[in-house]
Nucleic acid binder design. Structure first.
Length: 445
RNA sequence: GCCGUCGUAGCUUAAUAGGCAGAGCACUCGGCUGUUAACCGAGCGGUUGGCGGUUCAAAUCCGCCCGACGGCGCCA
């Protein structure tokens, strides 16, 4: 027999009937008795009165604890609580301009859930200290705001693709093969066999479309590159899509649609967070279709016009990306790169065999947000590209089968989710777009 | 991988030209009936990242190592 659920409030302030602090700050409980539960954000003790700023996931409100309203022993215990102690407070809500936020709870009762030890994070902290204490720092308003936006972004990606008729498809994280030549992989000891953490869902997705049709995923990708920049993580979240019968125009439209949908959802749900983070809300609001599209050749000419030292065949570095994105007031698609600087699986343009049918979507401060392409469908061309890059085609046998049994035109792209969050929130560093960042120099906590 | 900056108390930092390592915050104790990162008084807290060298004397100068941060390259 299943144990009976205990609905009775057996101790202290119980487990039911608590309100979100946000509601108090919106004036919804003024004059009424409420219960809240959360953590002490700050405390000020002036003798016969203690002010506690109580935080819950929705906000911070001041609670006043008057000495004559409590038993001596309890008052002393509350008085001694340190920052981040958890507690429940009961009392009447009053509108009072002396209180931060305009409302306060005049406590009639309080239950200490846990008296915190001395919290390691106070004011004046170095980046290093905050990263060492990341598990505690994610309690901060700043991190909470970013992670709220992040949650909206993930939801918006799922919503967008599902609304457009794409199905969710998973590839393995452990994989025997590389994906993009040059990118380095994290090796894993798989019972004495060498396998790697995946860099991309794509190759498996190209097998998946034959059954499911249009598919997408949100999954972690791993890059073992010692990239010391504000835009790189070794473990990041990748939104990828692969569309059957899709061509370059289709994935441009699909990329634009996704980015606009994400921005729209975040503006709808997290405007307060964006304001607190000092993001450029006006810029985000101004975005609409279509995004400008230029070819690689045009990009080179434009950069040369701006006196940048680039020549045909160069890939764009940070200064080039910065200049290029500054020439447009919206994200910009750059298409038709020379095949030499792009991956083996990209299809050549029919009108110019030296170019590939692919694009990068670039935005200011962050650089590349999306990389997409039409995929090569001929098995011979693909083997040749692999050999040219010094890869052993035999490792790719199963993948090459996707070009042997009813090969079809298809295309897809990958979007770096932390880069999108960085762009939306105007973050200086990508590490703050993820709760526990992994970078070449840090894999802890 | 390359270039640069930095490492002093739990945290943030000061220390003239190589000459007694000092403060703020936090914490502990005491005071205070409306605080706003409260305030006032006292206390606790240091192998100056590590190893070696120069010197009568090193946080400070030199060498090596470790760690962090910033920029470039590579990429999403």
């Amino acid at each position: 027999m299943a144990p009976k659920r205990n609905e009775q409030e057996t101790e202290g302030l119980g487990k039911k009937g608590f309100v979100d602090i946000e509601e108090i700050l919106e004036g919804n409980h003024t004059g009424r008795e409420v219960k809240v539960r959360g953590w002490i954000h700050r405390t000020r003790d002036i003798g016969n009165m203690v002010f506690l700023n109580v935080r819950d996931p929705s906000g911070v409100v001041q609670a006043t604890i008057a000495k004559d309203g409590f038993k001596e022993e309890k008052f002393e215990k509350i008085k001694d609580l340190l920052v981040e102690s958890s507690l429940k407070v009961k009392g009447e809500v009053a509108e009072d301009e002396r209180a931060p936020g305009g409302y306060e709870i005049r406590a009639s009762d309080a239950e200490i859930v846990h008296a915190s030890e001395d919290f390691p994070i106070h004011k004046d902290q170095s980046i290093e200290h905050l990263l060492d204490n990341r598990h505690l720092w994610i309690r901060s308003t700043e991190m909470r705001d970013i992670l709220n936006v992040r949650s909206t972004v993930f939801g918006a990606i799922h919503d967008y693709f599902r609304c457009e008729g794409y199905k969710e498809f998973q590839s393995p994280i452990l994989t025997p093969l590389a994906c993009e030549g040059g990118a380095t992989l994290f090796p894993v000891d798989y019972f004495d066999e060498d396998v790697y953490l995946t860099q991309s869902w794509q190759l498996y997705a190209e097998a998946g479309i034959f059954g499911l049709g249009d598919i997408y995923t949100i999954a972690p990708s791993f890059r073992a590159e010692k990239s010391r920049t504000p835009r790189h993580l070794t473990e990041y979240w990748h939104a990828e899509v692969e569309g059957l019968w899709h061509d370059l125009d289709d994935i441009i439209e699909l990329g634009e649609g996704l980015v606009l949908n994400i921005a729209e959802e975040v503006l709808k749900k997290n405007e307060e967070e964006l304001e607190r983070l000092d993001a450029d809300v006006e810029y985000l609001r101004s975005l609409d279709e279509p995004f400008p599209i230029i070819t690689y050749d045009e990009a080179i000419y434009r950069l040369q016009d701006e006196n940048m030292d680039v020549k045909y065949g160069d890939d764009f570095g940070v200064p080039e990306e910065k200049k290029l994105t500054s020439l447009f007031d919206k994200p910009v698609f750059v298409t038709h790169y020379p095949k030499e600087i792009k991956a083996f699986y990209m299809k050549r343009a029919e009108e110019d065999e030296s170019k590939v049918l692919g694009y990068d979507l670039m935005v200011p401060h962050v650089g590349e947000l999306i990389g997409g392409s039409v995929r090569e469908t001929k098995v011979e061309s693909m083997i040749k590209r692999l050999e040219d890059e010094g890869e052993d085609p035999s490792i790719y046998e199963w993948f090459l089968d996707t070009r042997r049994y009813g090969s079809v035109p298809h295309a897809g792209y990958g979007l770096g989710i932390e880069r999108v969050i960085m762009w939306l929130c105007d973050l200086d560093h990508i590490r703050d777009a993820i709760p526990f960042p992994r970078t070449p120099n840090r894999c802890r906590p």
